[in-house]
């Protein structure tokens, strides 16, 4: 399922992933430092860029969906990110009521 011994001769997937990661990094940097948007908008945008870049790593570099257990791996990571969002957003929201 998704993996076999058929070899590509040039690592296109990796190079495309790397170029996109660089673009996303510099885009986030530009949005944060030079876009002049409000702090809320900036944080919203750069978090989205980070999630895209993390997905690139998982799919293009880590081959998350390959092998028989690709589905389990993907569900496992999706669930762990769900836990992360709940822990982080839940803590920040709760503590926003403390002085």
């Amino acid at each position: 399922m998704g993996v076999n011994n058929h070899h590509e001769t040039f690592p296109w997937k990796h190079i495309v992933g790397f170029i996109f990661s660089l673009l996303l990094t510099f885009a986030a940097l530009w949005v944060a430092l030079s876009s002049g948007l409000s702090a809320g908008a900036i944080i919203g945008i750069i978090v989205i860029l980070a999630v895209i870049q993390a997905s690139l790593q998982l799919f293009m570099f880590m081959h998350m969906t390959e092998s028989d257990s690709g589905k389990i791996q993907t569900i496992n990571m999706a669930y762990s990110f769900f836990i992360a969002v709940v822990v982080v957003a839940g803590s920040v929201w709760t503590m926003s009521f403390v002085l």
């Binding site: 998350m64 257990s69 496992n76 990571m77 669930y79 762990s80 990110f81 836990i83 822990v87 803590s91």
Partner: peptide
């Protein structure tokens, strides 16, 4: 991969 899921939870607490 399961271990990495646990690592995500670990870092989530530190980020929080």
């Amino acid at each position: 991969w399961i271990f990495l899921g646990a690592e995500v939870a670990l870092f989530a607490t530190l980020f929080a």
